[in-house]
Simulated scan of single mutants.
Amino acid sequence: MSGGVDSAVAAARAKEAGHEVTGIHLALSRNPKSYRSGARGCCTIEDANDARRAADVIGIPFYVWDLSDRFHTDVVEDFMDTYAAGQTPNPCLRCNEKIKFAAVLDKALALGFDAVATGHYASVVQGPAGVELHRAVDGAKDQSYVLGVLDEQQLRHSLFPLGDTPKTKVREEAAARGLLVADKPDSHDICFVADGDNTGWLREKLGDRAPNQGGEIVDEATGTVLGQHTGTYGFTIGQRKGLRLGHPAPDGRPRYVLDIEPVSGTVTVGPRERLAVERITGDRLRWCGAPLPAGTMLDGPDVTVQLRAHGAEHRAVVRVLDGQLDVELVEHAHGIAPGQAVVVYDGTRVVGSATITRADRVPVGAAG
């Protein structure tokens, strides 16, 4: 129970379905204000109090589990290391993989519980070959992307009571149940970064871990140095704003970040069409069901990939290699960076995911 409306309604539904329910709030920082301040929907003292009040209304026991050390090591440190390497991480996936459905689930099973229920918008169903993870009914709130790291064992012990309900109905239900969080705003940004200022937070936390403390911003086509920066961790592939370039493009069009080289500190920029990606390679494969053997090819009108938490689906041909995933994009994607997750779908079913290690751009003159 995060202290938000979704997990509160999920807990209420689980109890109403006849389960013996215990509310658990995760303390992810020994000093919550060291990560963020104010009621932002996650990781604050206010959120813990909101969760406790919701549990009282529902009529279930409530406990706080301190997972701050594990969270810092597996999520926060991973976030910093990935940015320092010039990549773009998604800490929500790592939190689901390492904390909510690993550390929490392991502890719950050891204590005799059968499953972990959360307020994520997704559905677990029993398919012909076993348990399956599917998209939520509410496409605008679907969170199956950030759950694409869950394996078959974890899915067998997971419940997502909100997968069949639009978010507006969840809020109405919360109000009808007398839950004070019914109108609480959704959490946004990264829960441990104050005010959503990733660059400022990284500048403060990384220190000497960053491989460089500055470098050049270079035009891809001409090699011209357009400006200077104070650290590659302040950039992501596809970024347009905040580049502070001293030289406008000859055609007057905006430039975007195309490449980040953390060792030399070089950030390469160019026009938007140079962000088009036609092929992706990924490792750290995670299967939401039975693992697919090397040599498997997924092709067909329903095979798609999603590359961002709230991004579009892209038609693709997916090949399983030895420890890697090869994704040929039938529909080009833009601004894809190493470190992001590629989640594979067959219709509404989540097949699995991988961490992107390489994104091959469309050759010059061929981008559409």
Rank of each mutant, 00 (worst) to 15 (best):
S2D: 00
V5L: 05
A12R: 02
R13C: 05
H19Q: 10
E20F: 14
T22P: 03
G23R: 01
L26T: 11
R30C: 00
N31K: 10
K33W: 07
S34W: 07
S34C: 06
G38W: 02
E46N: 11
R52K: 14
A55I: 06
G59V: 10
I60M: 11
Y63A: 13
Y63E: 13
W65Q: 04
D66S: 03
L67K: 04
D69N: 08
F71S: 04
H72F: 12
D74M: 03
Q87F: 08
P91M: 07
C92D: 13
L105N: 03
L105K: 03
A110K: 15
F113D: 02
D114H: 14
T118E: 05
T118A: 08
P128T: 15
H134N: 02
K141N: 06
D142L: 06
D142K: 00
G148E: 01
Q154F: 05
S158C: 15
L162K: 08
T165Y: 09
T165C: 11
T165E: 14
K167M: 09
T168A: 10
K169Y: 13
E172K: 01
E173Y: 02
A174H: 05
R177V: 00
L180M: 13
V181R: 01
V181D: 02
K184I: 03
P185C: 03
D189H: 12
C191D: 02
G196T: 00
N198E: 10
T199P: 03
L202K: 01
L206K: 01
G207V: 00
R209P: 00
A210S: 04
G214A: 04
G215F: 12
G215L: 10
I217H: 03
D219H: 02
D219A: 15
T222L: 12
G223M: 05
G223C: 07
T224Y: 01
L226A: 03
Q228F: 08
T236F: 05
K241T: 05
R244C: 01
L245D: 14
L245S: 04
H247A: 12
H247P: 03
A249L: 06
A249N: 05
P250G: 09
P250S: 09
G252S: 03
R255I: 08
Y256K: 06
P262L: 08
V263M: 11
G265L: 10
T266E: 05
T268Y: 04
V277F: 01
V277P: 02
V277M: 14
R279D: 08
T281R: 09
D283S: 14
L285S: 07
L285V: 11
A290K: 10
P291F: 06
P291L: 07
L292D: 13
L292T: 12
G300F: 11
P301G: 07
D302S: 14
V303R: 02
V303H: 04
V303I: 15
T304R: 03
L307N: 04
R308G: 09
R308Y: 12
R308V: 09
A309W: 04
R315P: 07
R315D: 11
L321W: 07
D322A: 14
E331P: 02
E331F: 09
A337V: 07
G339P: 10
G347N: 12
D360L: 11
R361I: 09
R361H: 15
V362L: 07
P363N: 10
V364G: 08
